[in-house]
Design a protein around this nucleic acid. Structure first.
Lengths: 232, 232
DNA sequence: AAATTTCTTAAGATTATCTTAAGGCGGCAT
DNA sequence: ATGCCGCCTTAAGATAATCTTAAGAAATTT
């Protein structure tokens, strides 16, 4: 899976430009023109690196960087205008891993991105491909690392089994997953016995917590005789 | 099964040229000269990659790309004329995985197609051969993943057995399938008893849902004394 | 060890689906 | 033409899948 990069700059033309160059290198780009939107991306997308402009209309880049650092450890590259000298150093102390002054050569930025990612991925996963750790569907967000789940920003407290079931459904969204397949995925093949409705009961609990009724479900749909699915 | 590639360009000569090169590499090519037709292909064929021209008479390539992204996750390669400004390249924003500027070397395009497919299939199925998951016949579309069925864009709600029977007929299209064979395929050999008209009743229900009358059927034809078939 | 949370089982209720069987209709052959 | 046999149609009873509850078992936390 390609690395996800968050790009935040209130000057749209600059954000767009960076995006083009990054996409060309096959990165997944998440773009924001303001800080609030950026933070939402941080919480809901698989981000591996952030490029933050310091000057933003709402929250400044340093504060965003701090917020990121509270929960994540991916690298952050700051963009600063040349005359913002003094703050630069401050920014670095607040956890940024690199900084680039505007105006900059896009290719130089790309090179720095690559360098940071090399460093980062070395520590995290020896493999090149990353597993998906975050899934977002409509208002539903699942975080596999923390086993946290939110629905329209409100946290749902799911039990481990509930989370696993929902995770399997979510990562197969669009496809019908049979009760048996769900069981094997969550409990493992060897525990499977055919007369056992435990999956169904967990589904019921999930629907309850998600305020989903079985007849007109917004999330977990039952496909009669086949299984359950979450619409794509 | 060979990978399916959608080629969309309003300049027929270009689409045709691409087609020749792709066919030569043994891909299944689905060609459109406009956006609407392309979207129809997306919903009804087994597509693994799309090549989209940006400038189209009806819907532009970016919008098509967005629409694709709502439901599918196969790679998209955009074709842009060299003089189409930079902000158009921003279209990459909307989810394209690669872009090629016209005029291009056909072999370069083919190389990029291969690269994207390599990347894509690595994430999706470790196996090289894909199962057929989508069958399209005239206005009829069957999706085995979601167990969904649409007839001229309108969804038909089929029961599991109905879906299975229709699937067997559809995947044997052009051939007559006997009532007995149908039964064995759907229920399994061991359940077969010769005096039982249940297949017939299901066929009847199918025809009802498909608005097909037995005397002049558009889809499920009965071949007297032999069985049923869907015309090729 | 007690308390709490979570999981599993089982049984009854509900609903969707399947099968059976019987009567009707129409091709096909004698 | 007429009778047979195979297909069509229908509806009701049988079956099977799912939903819902609740209670006891297991696991986890305090």
């Amino acid at each position: 899976m390609a690395a996800g990069i968050l790009v935040v700059d209130d000057e749209q033309s600059i954000a767009d430009l960076i995006e083009v160059y990054l996409k060309n290198e096959n990165y997944d780009v998440y773009k924001s023109y303001n800080g609030l939107d950026a933070l939402k991306h941080v919480e809901t997308q698989n981000i591996d690196l952030a490029i933050l402009d310091v000057m933003l209309p709402d929250i400044d880049g340093f504060s965003i960087c701090q917020k990121i650092r509270e929960k994540h450890n991916f690298p952050v590259i700051m963009l600063t205008a040349k005359d913002e000298e003094i703050d630069k150093i401050t920014g670095l102390t607040l956890g940024a891993d690199d900084y680039v002054t505007k105006p900059f050569q896009p290719l130089e930025l790309v090179a720095r991105v690559k360098a940071q990612l090399r460093r980062y991925t070395r520590y995290n996963s020896s493999e090149i491909s990353r597993e998906e750790k975050l899934i977002t569907i409509a208002g539903l967000v699942l975080n596999k690392d923390t086993h946290e789940c939110t629905l329209n920003e409100k946290p749902l407290s799911l039990t481990p089994t509930e989370f696993s079931i929902l995770w399997v459904l979510a990562s197969n969204r669009g496809r019908v997953v049979s009760s048996e397949e769900l069981f094997r995925e969550v409990w493992g093949d060897k525990y499977y016995t055919n007369s056992n409705n435990t999956v169904m009961v967990h589904i019921r609990h999930l629907r309850e917590k998600m305020n989903d009724n079985a007849e007109h479900p917004k999330y977990i749909k039952t496909v009669w005789g086949v299984g359950y699915k979450i619409e794509k």
